[in-house]
Design a protein around this nucleic acid. Structure first.
Lengths: 84, 84
DNA sequence: TAGTTATTTAGGCAAATGTCTAAATACATT
DNA sequence: AATGTATTTAGACATTTGCCTAAATAACTA
């Protein structure tokens, strides 16, 4: 839960999630979509992976990142606890 | 949205929200429920107020804090965007 | 008006965060 | 094997965060 909220607490990381909502993307594609350096984006992707919000898969020389929504269900459950 | 995620990115602040889910509490009651100093809790309450997650109302010499769920709906909406 | 209780503000400090550049690693191509 | 492309790791640096103590403010009570 901690890693999840930590990962979500950054506009760039949230934008990455929204980008991956459309389709899986390589690290390079993601980096190109932002004005930060590749290492910076790589670090953001690492935090998203730690929170289990994304999964990464090596495909040749590329690394493909995909959204993993299962952990968001946990957040959804936490949220709904307040709606009763 | 930034202030919201920032406010939620702390276990103490999330615990305060869960506490207020039961009933409104004064600043002192909230501070007593944790092992941190009163100024520290006051600061956490300030961040929760900035995110519009709680509202505060002066009642005599006490300050009563109440949960404000409307902003969580925004988060819920953001979350559900991924579920489709 | 003093004194007591409740809460916030101010200021300081160590740790965490987000960024960068430079270097390392991994794979592909020639 | 050497070079090029994709990505991550390492290390540095400024800013932000979360905590503290001390002091300030606000509101009761005697």
């Amino acid at each position: 839960m901690n890693a999840l909220f930590k990962a979500l607490n950054d506009p760039t990381r949230r934008a990455i999630l929204e980008m991956l909502r459309e389709r899986p993307c390589t690290a390079g594609e993601i980096a190109d979509a932002f004005q930060f350096s590749k290492p910076t984006i790589s670090h953001h992707l690492d935090l998203l992976r730690q929170a289990d919000l994304v999964a990464s898969e090596k495909q040749g020389q590329f690394v493909l990142y995909t959204l993993n929504m299962t952990v968001m269900d946990e957040l959804l459950g936490w949220l709904l606890q307040f709606k009763s």
